[in-house]
Design a binder for these strands. Sequence first.
DNA 1: CTACCGATTGACT
DNA 2: GTCAATCGGTAGA
Length: 221
Amino acid sequence: MNSVPDLKGCDRSGPAWSVLPRQFYCRDTVLVARELLGKILVRRSRGGTTAGRIVEVEAYLPHDDPACHATRGRTRSNRAMFGPPGCAYVYPIHSRYCLNAVTLETGVASAVLIRAVEPLHGIALMQRRRGCLAVRNLARGPARLCEAFAVDRRLDRWNLARGQRLWIVDDPATRLRPEEIGQSVRIGVTAAHDLPLRFFWRHCPFVSGPRGWTYAQESPT
DNA sequence: CTACCGATTGACT
DNA sequence: GTCAATCGGTAGA
């Protein structure tokens, strides 16, 4: 269950890629967000398998973060965020979907939004699902990503640590150095637009956002 | 029930 | 660069 035999063409000779365990997500949300950069998102469905490298994420915090969907309390719609870490939180917006990974601990609502991946495997399938040929645009943006990976509400609360249907694997060959990680304010949010909780792989063409942002922001701290 | 709004995208000037 | 389509979630009558 831990190997990814389907990933022809992007598998590398070296240590086997392992599914990120629940423990990975049971940590500080910003830390999880930064470490998710470079990991591989995998989706296996009846139509086939797609995989892509995570290059852009945003953190949504449990406290003092008005942009977090759970900031006004628990509802039927956002209950995934209050559930166990390591599960998916799929939220509909503008008749599309966005994929999050729940973090921290059960009962505390926090998550990492996966905003963009670099398509690695199953590109033809993504092109068909998206109705788009340009590889750069297949999964650049949270809703595009979900369409390319056939992620919808049925995967809300799905356990990403199971290694089935939808999961994330470590790629030991890819470790981002701190200077390769850019940081900026989150895109599109109206509340808390001052918090720098977006993290992305600098100089990566598969990152979303207005032109220039990719290279503009330096990471403080 | 209605009214408003959004963690978006793609088309267009 | 600007802008509107689109629809589920949420709040409020």
